[in-house]
Design a protein around this nucleic acid. Structure first.
Length: 677
RNA sequence: GCGCCCGUAGCUCAGCUGGAUAGAGCAUUUGGCUUCGAACCAAAGGGUCGGAGGUUCGAAUCCUUCCGGGCGCACCA
């Protein structure tokens, strides 16, 4: 509702500026006055124009206010919902809304739409399938999943077509390391690996946990010898194993496939606990076996992005110039030593090369290449597909490439490689694709030294002085996602048990689960993307203050009002259509009510802001502020004790609108509202 | 050495395209449950927005420089 009014107001002002001063301003700032008593919107536009018109801001504001006031009086339809315009401060244009009209529109759930044409591809999670997911992976998956919810079509908005991909690097060194561990440290064969998987399954031991320890053990084993020959042999073993995985069709590759697929299934389980689902799992093994790279290489050569280096340190490699390096290299005979190697002198492709091929596919720019598709996992409402090399057996295989825009949720340490992929696209003339490529970058989750020591890790004196310590799968250093989730749910369960001994165990558990997940998802979303999260159990396990459970609790309180009043939120809102509001919203005491309505009407504005800045944290902040606003309202107005029936209707509707928008906001954050807590 | 990010209350963080008195949570102190549930609310204390210049009517926000911290800069993935 709020966004609708704001949009048409700005359009109107732009028209006036054009007519009156012959000025076009594409960006018009909108702020909120320091106090609601001064109006709902504040426009600093007069300051902006002061210099261009060589006039005092206040004089310009006076002219604009006069113009707008005249149009208001004339009933200009674009200014619908606005009550008055006045000048404030040194030249602000403060706008007052027609509160009664605004409340009616909100009650009727009128709001601006969000969405557009085109297919948007989001890649997130992408955990190497060789170990358990940890808190860093949780941040990735929760960010990606939340953003996906903001974009996708739903009951509230028309949205965009969205595909969610989880890229699986099943042929990389990390998987190779675990295979080395199984084969050379534990003496496993293909057969005994199968037996191990069965045994783990039967004892409900998590395979990803098993690999977590094994991976750490192998990483250490590689360097745990003083014998130079042995050291070299171990290194070679690692390379040979990696090579076997990349080649495929051998026993080593089969072991890798067995283990990585089992771990992948565990990752999907972990994420499903958090309400995170995927549409497609493209695997590196198919990118290799379907020769995506060959097609990409041809294209890159044709377009002059890739060239053979004939001298210098990169002699014999196919290389690509880095961004911004063109100027200094062109016209020079010397080799570009700073160039990025894409194909090694032994003919193998680097990571960036494979990534370029993959991204060409994402945009539908890789001629004649597509994955085979196979059903991998069934969610209640849809199928998760996985890539295959074989012919398509499904009658109607899905389409996942050919995206109009892509978002890659990848941590900020990958900034350089991501830039190189974009650079390659741009260099090949795919500027449109390059422009629609968003590296959804975020900072890592690290452990505070205290947290690391609590977990039993030895922390060096030097590390103890640091603010945080980076987690490391290689060292087995970190907090596993499932462990954290288990702890959160257990903590919530203990609380629910004491508060609600009267309800059934299964319901207590499901409520505790919703609270635990709410706490976790909110915790990962409350920080803006480029803030390093220094993880600490004390903060993450908190259910008070700025947390997910705080918002959930506000919703439960609202729900209790309707339950005891013998009505519903929907009925309460419907009653607003005919209610004579009188001056209830204007008096000082009524302001608290109006502020609730106003804030509740800003959801679409906030979502739009989250999408355009790729920053879900704003929505988390908004959900919390709305809950705070509601709690304040809750204490100031005792709804059920209200004797004036008209006023009671208004109070009920106020609680209802706050509840409706809190539930929606939490929904986009992937957090459910429990019935009790 | 080069590139990117960060530095705001005791702690953890917001502060969007420059705007009115820099805000939350936690912690501390105090007050509030016979009430629609206190996982809550109210109040108090707590700030040279890392330092110094500059642009501007106006700077936490933009520019320059310095200081402090983090992360990247492979024929590893």
């Amino acid at each position: 509702m709020y966004r609708t009014i704001q949009q048409s107001l700005l359009a109107r002002i732009q028209a006036i500026l054009l007519a009156k001063y012959d000025i076009t301003l594409t960006q018009l700032a909108v702020e909120q006055p320091p106090s609601i008593a001064m109006g709902e919107l504040a426009l600093p536009v007069a300051f902006e124009l002061a210099k261009r018109l060589r006039k005092a801001p206040r004089a310009i504001a006076t002219e604009l206010a006069a113009e707008l006031t005249a149009e208001l009086a004339a009933g200009q339809p674009e200014l619908q919902g606005i009550a008055s315009v006045e000048i404030a401060g040194a030249g602000y244009l403060n706008i007052r809304l027609d509160r009664t009209a605004a409340v009616r529109r909100s009650a009727a759930d009128q709001h601006a739409d969000i969405g557009g044409p085109g297919f948007r591809l989001i890649e997130h999670t992408s955990i190497n399938p060789n170990k358990a997911a940890h808190i860093g992976h949780l941040r990735n998956a929760i960010l990606g999943d939340t953003f996906q919810r903001l974009l996708r079509k739903d009951d509230y908005k028309s949205g965009y077509e969205v595909g969610v991909q989880n890229y699986i690097d099943n042929t990389g060194v990390q998987v190779a390391d675990v295979v080395v561990g199984l084969v050379h440290l534990e003496g496993k064969t293909l057969g005994s690996t199968r037996e191990l998987l069965t045994e783990l399954m039967e004892t409900s031991t998590r395979i990803d946990y098993y690999c977590w320890d094994l991976y750490a053990r192998v990483s250490q084993w590689y360097t745990a010898t003083t014998d130079a020959a042995e050291l070299a042999a171990r290194k070679q073993l690692r390379l040979d194993t990696l090579h076997a995985l990349e080649t495929g069709s051998n026993e080593t590759a089969e072991i890798a496939d067995l283990v990585s697929t089992a771990v992948l299934r565990r990752h999907l389980e972990t994420m499903e606990r958090l309400g995170i689902e995927y549409d497609f799992l493209p695997r590196e093994s198919e990118i290799l076996s379907l020769h995506f790279w060959d097609a990409a290489r041809t294209l890159m050569m044709e377009r002059g992005v890739l060239y053979l280096e004939t001298s210098g340190k990169n002699k014999g490699c196919y290389v690509m110039r880095r961004a911004g390096a063109e100027a200094q290299v062109i016209g020079s005979d010397a080799p570009d030593e700073d160039a990025k190697v894409i194909v090694r002198s032994n003919g193998t492709v680097t990571y960036v090369g494979k990534d370029i091929a993959y991204h060409l596919w994402k945009f539908g720019l890789l001629p004649g290449k597509d994955f085979g598709y196979e059903r991998f996992h069934e969610y209640p409402t849809h199928t998760c597909w996985i890539s295959t090399a074989g012919p398509v057996t499904e009658p109607q295989p899905p389409t996942f490439g050919k995206a109009d825009a892509i978002y890659n949720v990848i941590d900020s340490r990958q900034n350089d490689p991501q830039t190189q992929v974009v650079q390659a696209l741009r260099g090949m003339g795919f500027t449109d694709a390059a422009d629609r490529y968003t590296h959804f970058s975020y900072e890592m989750v690290a452990l505070t030294p205290r947290c690391a020591m609590d977990l039993g890790y030895t922390v060096s004196e030097e590390d103890q002085k640091r603010a945080y310590i980076e987690v490391s799968g290689r060292k087995g250093f970190g907090v596993k996602a499932d462990d954290l989730l288990d702890r959160l749910i257990a903590a919530a369960k203990a609380e629910v048990d004491t508060r609600h001994p009267e309800i059934a165990e299964t319901e207590r558990l499901s409520t505790a689960t919703q609270i635990g997940i709410g706490a976790l998802r909110y915790f990962m979303l409350r920080f803006t993307r480029n803030t390093v999260i220094a993880f600490d159990f004390k903060d993450a396990l908190s259910f008070e203050g700025e947390t997910g459970p705080y918002v959930q609790y506000a919703i439960v309180r609202a729900a209790n009002i309707f339950r005891k009043a013998g009505t519903t939120a929907e009925e309460s809102l419907a009653a607003m259509a005919t209610l004579d509001l009188g001056a209830a919203l204007d008096v000082e005491e009524g302001s608290s009510l109006w502020e609730t309505w106003l804030l509740a009407s800003k959801l679409t504005l906030v979502i739009e802001q989250c999408i355009s800045t790729a920053e879900p944290a704003y929505l988390a902040k908004y959900a919390f502020q709305l809950a705070q606003q509601f709690n304040n309202f809750y204490h100031r107005h005792h709804v059920l004790n209200e004797t004036d029936p008209a006023r009671k209707t208004l109070l009920l509707a106020t609680a209802a609108v706050a509840q409706r928008e809190m539930v929606r906001a939490l929904g986009y954050l992937g957090i459910e509202a429990p019935p009790v807590m």
